[in-house]
């Protein structure tokens, strides 16, 4: 654990969280939330929680993004907020 590295990833996390909520295209929102999960996985690997990081890389960045894209494909990708 190196606190400079930690701070850098945490700031990026806050930025991606805000972007994924503000962007008006739901497909982009799903992609950015995938980036959020990948950064979270990096952070956990850096904290020494390798098993949790592995799970997050497979689940958060992989499957939950696919699930969201499947839903967006079946509903609509436009939104007003």
């Amino acid at each position: 654990m190196i606190w400079q590295f930690d701070l850098y990833i945490l700031v990026l996390l806050v930025v991606t969280a805000i972007v994924s909520l503000r962007v008006r295209d739901l497909l982009s929102a799903a992609m950015v939330s995938g980036v959020y999960s990948l950064l979270m996985c990096l952070l956990w690997a850096e904290m020494g929680a390798v098993d949790v990081a592995f799970t997050e890389a497979a689940v958060g960045a992989g499957l939950s993004t696919v699930f969201m894209i499947a839903t967006i494909l079946r509903t609509t990708r436009r939104t007003t907020d």
Binding site: V50, D51, A53, F54, T55, A58, G62, L63, V66
Partner: peptide, 17 residues
């Protein structure tokens, strides 16, 4: 090593997807 049933199962599901 890091891994186990949950991670392996998710990767198997990802291969079918």
């Amino acid at each position: 090593s890091p891994g186990g049933g949950f991670q392996g199962g998710v990767i198997l599901a990802a291969s079918f997807i």
